[in-house]
Each structure stands twice: as C-alpha cells, then as structure tokens.
Simulated assay, not measured.
Amino acid sequence: MLQVSRTDSPPVRLRRQTVSPRCGWPSSHHGSSLCLLPGRGCCHVSAVKCRLQAGECLRQDLSVLRWERYKPSVIRNLLRSSSALLLALMPLLPAAASATEGRHKAVRPDPVVFVHGWNSDGSTWRAMAERFRADGWPADHLDQWTYDATQSNTTTAVRLAKEIERVLERTGAARVDLVTHSMGALSSRHYLKNLGGTAKVDAWVSLAGPNHGTDAARWCAGTPCIEMRPGSDFLSALNSGDETPGSPRYATWRSPCDMVISPGDSVVLDGAVNNTTACLGHSDLQADQTVYEEVKKHIR
C-alpha cells in the first residue's frame, strides 16, 4: 500500500523529470505508484514508498521519479468531479440489488408434488425428495403426498386437485411439477385432462405408469385394480383423443426389467418424451440416481 507521511529528516533531493501536463502514467513505468500532494503536485514512482518533504515527492530508494506541480484549483476540480460521480452512481445501487434479487426469484423451481402408486404412501419418495432438496429445492416445495390408494382414480384426481391448490397457495407459485409412480400416473392424468389441471402443471413425469393398463392388475381386487386392467372403461376414456393434452411437458420412464407393468410399452404416451432406463425393478425407478438426474433435467 502507498504510504505518504511527514518527516523532519533532511530531504533527499531527487532528479526531476517532467511528465505530461495531466500528470499521466509514464509510458515506461506502467506499474509505478502515484504520490499526490494536495495543492502542490504529484509524482510517479516505481516503488511503493514516498515521503512528503518541502512540497516534493521523495523516493527512499532513489529509483526513477517523475513529477509535476498542479495548481490548487485543478486539484479541487478533480476532487469535486470524483465526488459528483460517486453521488450520481449511488441511486443505481438499490436498483441493481433489486434486479439481482429478481433474477434469483425467476429461477426458483416449481413445487414438486409426488404421487405414489397402489398400496403405497408418500414415504416411498424419500430418496428422490432428498436429492431434490440437496440440489436446491426448498423443503416446502417438495410435497410427498399420501392418499387412499383403495379408492377410484377419479376420486383421487379430485383430491389431487385440492392438494395442488393447497401447495400453490402455500408457496405462492403459479404451477407445480407432478412426479408420479405406477398408478399415480392415472389419477394425475385424469386431473390434467378433465379437471383443468393443465393450467396448474408445468411438467409431468410418469415412472413405470400403467398408462395403457397392466396384466398384473388382474391379480388384485378393488376399483383401482379394475381401472388398471387393459381395456377398462377408465383407461379407454383416459386415452381417447390427445394422450398429452395442454401445455405441460410430459415425460415417461419405463424399465425393460419391470415385472409389474405388462406389457412394458404400456408406459409410453403419444406426445411425451418416452425414456427407457437400465434394468431396474418396478419400485427401483424412484431411488435410482440416473433416473433422478433425468427427471430433474426434465422438470427444470
């Protein structure tokens, strides 16, 4: 750091060399230091120490010195100009901070509503939710919703609509992302197609969803099992017309080793980005790291 001080020691008179009228940096000493003498003059030195003596800049190590006297009026004008510039820039600082804050808000992720499958609950999403949280999703933006999986998918869709409204109100978001597993794909698709859900959902994900039915549902009883059977009235209505309606971004993931969804291409939807995973079991898609990374990229 440049130090300017007064001393009573005898001055060391140095050779003077005139620089430009504006006391500009000498072309041969771009790394030199500047010693400013208010009301007297300024000098450029290649070392970092100089002292004030008899109105001159003095170098202790006697290396090159270049200096010129300024009139007091010039020094005052320079100081006034610097102060005026700082005052002019100060009002811009809060605006810049506000713009930065706005950009941070703009990239805040949508809330994620997880919809589990038959004979399950919200805890099945623990691994994936933890990964989202570690990657910057706020805890209140990760809704591991639990519902009664023994009721009709149409009934679940109505409950899902209410759950999404609750999440939007709590977070202040405009839309959510839906990440579903297995039968969770069916109630969420009914919500999108028949209950105005396309206006509230930005991205939709189906992991191992029986979107066109599964033969495994013939081995279980109850309304949701009947609805999951290939050719059921529920699935026929759900898949009639556009399978991916509205503006949401649809994507599916299926595994060649999934023994629950049969046939395996039941997961695929027209208009969606359809992905095939490595050899994973039916429930392994929710915890697989690679699947998570692909889902995260999709909903971003």
Rank of each mutant, 00 (worst) to 15 (best):
A99G: 04
D135R: 12
Q53Y: 06
H212C: 00
Q289I: 08
R218Q: 15
S73E: 13
S5A: 09
P94Y: 02
R159C: 11
D202M: 03
G222S: 13
R69D: 15
A84C: 01
H181K: 03
A185D: 11
W219S: 10
S236V: 13
T244P: 05
C43H: 06
D110L: 01
D215A: 04
G196H: 07
V107D: 09
S20Y: 14
T124M: 02
H282K: 06
A47L: 06
A99E: 13
I226V: 13
L87R: 07
S206W: 04
G136P: 00
P38N: 02
L192K: 07
S27Y: 04
A47W: 07
P138D: 15
M259Y: 13
W204N: 02
G184N: 12
D202H: 14
C220H: 05
V273M: 00
V48R: 01
A96P: 00
E227C: 05
K296L: 07
S120E: 14
S46Q: 04
D265G: 00
Q286T: 15
I299W: 07
M90I: 14
S152N: 07
L168W: 15
Y191S: 06
E101Y: 00
S123N: 11
W145Y: 13
V115K: 00
L86R: 00
D8I: 10
L37V: 09
A84E: 11
Q53L: 07
R6V: 14
G122Q: 07
S9V: 05
L79Y: 15
L58T: 13
S120W: 03
L58A: 06
S5G: 10
L168M: 12
A174R: 14
V176C: 09
L78S: 06
W145G: 06
V115C: 04
G213V: 10
E227G: 08
T156C: 03
S120A: 12
V64F: 08
G41S: 05
L160Q: 04
L142G: 04
A173D: 06
L86H: 02
W219P: 01
L86I: 05
P256T: 02
G281W: 07
D258Q: 02
W253Y: 13
